[in-house]
Simulated assay, not measured.
Amino acid sequence: MMTSLFAIFEPSSSIFTIPLNWLSTFLGLLFMPLAFWVAPSRWGIFWSKLMETLHKELKSLLTPTHVGTTLLFVSLFSLIVFNNSLGLLPYIFTSSSHLVMTLSLSLPIWITLMIYGWLNHTQHMFSHLVPQGTPSALMPFMVVIESVSNLIRPGTLAVRLCANMIAGHLLLTLLSQTGPHIASSSMLMVLLSSQVLLLLLESAVAVIQSYVFTVLSTLYTGEIN
């Protein structure tokens, strides 16, 4: 039972050993607003306004020297939200539910920030290891705690996104498997209603987790002064 349940997340479909499931990562390009290709549309105007609002919010979290990096994080948000949303459609592989995908997003960002910070702002990076006002007796412990907290940042970013996407999909799958065994029409309507509500919740989670991933990455960047 558990093997077949988790099999929905297994990237096993392939042709000539090419894992075609991972092509779903690039399907988001097909949903880009038409304003980028043909002419302005309501969808294009909405997406442009959304990106502009996100840019202003991320800009406020960054120092003036890092403002240009908002383009990177807005693009990151777009990639994640498209992948999360596409995963809610039938027969489309959810690449963001795999640590391979999420770690590929969080690890390069964290490594780049660490290299840049330690090479250009070494003293400031050392000061982050000991929060202001820490008693002298607790300083060695705070250095260890802050170092561990810094090292697990890419993992927490990746696992948070991956786990939230897996949890919703598993719950939808478990509820859908009980449908054929329900004889009562009233219980079947309750099941369908709960499935619709859960699908709406998962749609919100897809956007919220993309936003959380982007904002946390921006906050980590803002710490590198």
Score class of each variant (00 low, 15 high):
residue 81 V to M: 08
residue 191 L to F: 09
residue 98 H to R: 15
residue 144 V to D: 08
residue 76 L to A: 08
residue 177 Q to N: 14
residue 34 L to P: 02
residue 159 V to D: 07
residue 150 N to M: 11
residue 1 M to E: 14
residue 85 S to T: 11
residue 194 S to H: 08
residue 152 I to G: 02
residue 188 L to C: 07
residue 146 E to C: 11
residue 85 S to A: 12
residue 1 M to C: 04
residue 105 L to N: 04
residue 143 V to S: 03
residue 83 N to T: 05
residue 15 I to L: 13
residue 157 L to H: 11
residue 150 N to R: 12
residue 69 T to P: 00
residue 180 P to H: 10
residue 100 V to P: 00
residue 211 Y to S: 10
residue 180 P to Y: 07
residue 63 T to V: 08
residue 208 I to G: 04
residue 16 F to V: 11
residue 160 R to K: 12
residue 110 W to F: 14
residue 113 L to V: 05
residue 64 P to S: 05
residue 152 I to M: 11
residue 65 T to Y: 09
residue 157 L to W: 06
residue 219 L to P: 00
residue 127 S to W: 01
residue 46 F to V: 06
residue 109 I to V: 15
residue 18 I to Q: 07
residue 34 L to G: 12
residue 207 V to F: 07
residue 191 L to R: 10
residue 188 L to H: 10
residue 157 L to I: 00
residue 159 V to H: 01
residue 141 F to E: 14
residue 162 C to D: 09
residue 173 T to R: 13
residue 120 N to F: 05
residue 64 P to K: 08
residue 2 M to V: 12
residue 100 V to H: 09
residue 190 V to C: 06
residue 184 S to E: 12
residue 18 I to R: 09
residue 63 T to D: 12
residue 156 T to K: 08
residue 86 L to R: 01
residue 186 S to L: 13
residue 108 P to R: 09
residue 222 G to L: 10
residue 126 F to N: 13
residue 5 L to C: 07
residue 158 A to V: 07
residue 126 F to W: 11
residue 43 W to T: 04
residue 111 I to C: 11
residue 60 S to M: 09
residue 175 L to W: 06
residue 71 L to H: 11
residue 52 E to I: 05
residue 170 L to V: 14
residue 202 E to I: 00
residue 8 I to R: 15
residue 27 L to R: 00
residue 73 F to V: 11
residue 81 V to K: 03
residue 173 T to Y: 02
residue 49 K to W: 03
residue 136 S to G: 00
residue 32 M to G: 02
residue 212 V to I: 15
residue 71 L to E: 15
residue 17 T to E: 13
residue 147 S to M: 10
residue 168 G to E: 02
residue 173 T to L: 07
residue 102 T to I: 03
residue 30 L to V: 08
residue 71 L to P: 00
residue 96 S to V: 03
residue 168 G to T: 04
residue 104 S to M: 10
residue 11 P to I: 02
residue 151 L to F: 11
